[in-house]
Amino acid sequence: MSNLSLKYVVDNQDFTRAGEASSDVKKKLKMMGVPPEAVRKVAIAMYEGEINMVIHANGGEITVDITPTQIIMILKDNGPGIADIEQAMQAGWSTASENIRALGFGAGMGLPNMKKYSDEMDIDTVLGVGTTVTMKVNICVSHKI
């Protein structure tokens, strides 16, 4: 399998279309013959991240690099940044408004889920500038889930 790089622009506040990028990546990985477990981990981790970008962060850009051994997702947003990463990583903690909760999200499971479904996750955030989340999912050796 050769290396492939995919780029997606995530629209600001377009909740209806949120998840389109993750859906496309899932389809492409399946077609490339990536093992189903890795496909699912990438799909869920990226979908949570994509939803976060729409509901919390004014959209942004996602790059997905697919190598023979790893899938690397880089989610860069233009949002407010995360004041306290440790707190944000706690299951159940959320800054989501009632409006977002009414849409089925904002249960405070986004970041913990992204960590759970990726083999490596790194958050680089600057208040008032934005957040870049890098997630890596290993192909073949991923038995975390």
Binding site: S23, I51, G104, F105, A107, M109, G110, P112
Partner: peptide, 26 residues
């Protein structure tokens, strides 16, 4: 809550929900 479905569901084949938006399908 779709967040909870994404967090706690494993190998389920049926989803029952009262939420009606495109994110249920995704």
């Amino acid at each position: 809550m779709m967040s909870d479905v994404l967090a706690f569901v494993k190998d389920q084949s049926v989803l029952l929900t009262g939420l009606c938006n495109p994110q249920v399908i995704r």
